[in-house]
């Protein structure tokens, strides 16, 4: 069972009006891998994530997560199964503190009923304490311990990105989707992040699916890379294979550039 891929995407397509944002994309992601999705702006990478997490329903195709079909399911249901994500344009709960943001994602793991909350039963106290402790732990893990009680919207940009990862980890996911986690970070922060992503896979055993424009980051930590262009997957392979493929250069820079390079 654990040998089966964590995620299998079979020929999914998504159109917006006349625009084919994701075109017949298939991909299979083995457990424990760091897998990157790259492609020029507007290639359909974020749309692909939105399909996986249930925010959009595919027009065609199937998605299997951990051996179970999740096509067209509610995002909350998919998240509860263990698929967590961050957003390209940071989407924190601004008026909550950092630790509360993380605690929100503990929702499905907190076993308290409405009545428990009203009566403050021992179970409520226990579960609440557990949620708080785990959340603080995760903040610590993302080096945000000192920010626990500050409002999310008051954190600097790089820390907001890390807080999103901490929040996603609170779901105890099997698969973590990171949408441009290094965007807007300085080289030092990017380097820290790179180590952290590898750490998440190694320490927590979480499979990672990564969208990123920073090629230095992508090439040094991904084991496999898929390239999207105009919604279609044009290539999949190891970083070496992808780096040296003229089609990739072409996708990024246009046909003329690819010819010049070869």
């Amino acid at each position: 069972m654990s040998e089966a891929p964590i995620l299998e995407v079979e020929r999914v397509t998504k159109t917006f009006g006349g625009l084919v944002a994701v075109n017949d994309v298939s991909v299979s992601i083995p457990r424990g891998m760091i897998f990157a999705v790259i492609g020029p702006n507007g290639a359909g990478k974020t749309t692909f994530f939105n399909l996986l997490t249930g925010i959009y329903k595919p027009d065609k195709g199937r998605i299997l997560f951990d051996g179970e079909e999740i096509t067209g399911r509610d995002p909350a249901w998919i998240a509860a199964r263990g698929m967590a994500r961050t957003f390209q344009n940071i989407r924190l709960f601004g008026s909550m503190t950092a630790v509360e943001n993380v605690m929100v994602a503990r929702h499905v793991h907190t076993k308290t009923s409405y009545a428990d909350a009203l009566l403050r039963t021992p179970r409520f106290q226990r579960e609440e304490k557990k949620a708080l402790e785990r959340s603080l732990e995760l903040l610590e893990y993302m080096q945000l311990g000192h920010r626990a009680h500050e409002l999310a919207k008051n954190l600097p940009y790089g820390e907001q990105r890390r807080l999103e990862i901490a929040r996603a980890l609170a779901l105890e996911p099997k698969l973590l989707l990171l949408d441009e986690p290094a965007a807007g970070m300085n080289p030092q922060e990017t380097e820290d992040l790179q180590r952290r992503i590898v750490g998440i896979r190694d320490d927590l055993g979480v499979t990672i699916l990564l969208i990123e424009h920073d090629m230095q980051l992508v090439m040094s930590i991904s084991e496999r890379i898929a390239v999207l262009d105009y919604g279609s997957k044009i290539l999949e392979g190891t970083p070496e294979e992808v780096q040296n493929d003229p089609r990739v250069i072409e996708a990024y820079l246009g046909r003329g550039a690819a010819e010049g390079a070869s």
Binding site: A76, A79, A80, R85, F93, S95, V104, A105, F124
Partner: peptide
């Protein structure tokens, strides 16, 4: 106060702040 400081209160505020993010964090809308 008790609801506010429980997973229900947090879920409500999360929905108020950002429905999409709340759902992606496992909160059924």
């Amino acid at each position: 106060v008790r609801l506010d400081r429980s997973r229900f209160g947090r879920a409500w505020i999360a929905i108020r702040e950002d429905e999409t993010a709340a759902r992606a964090m496992g909160i059924p809308l």
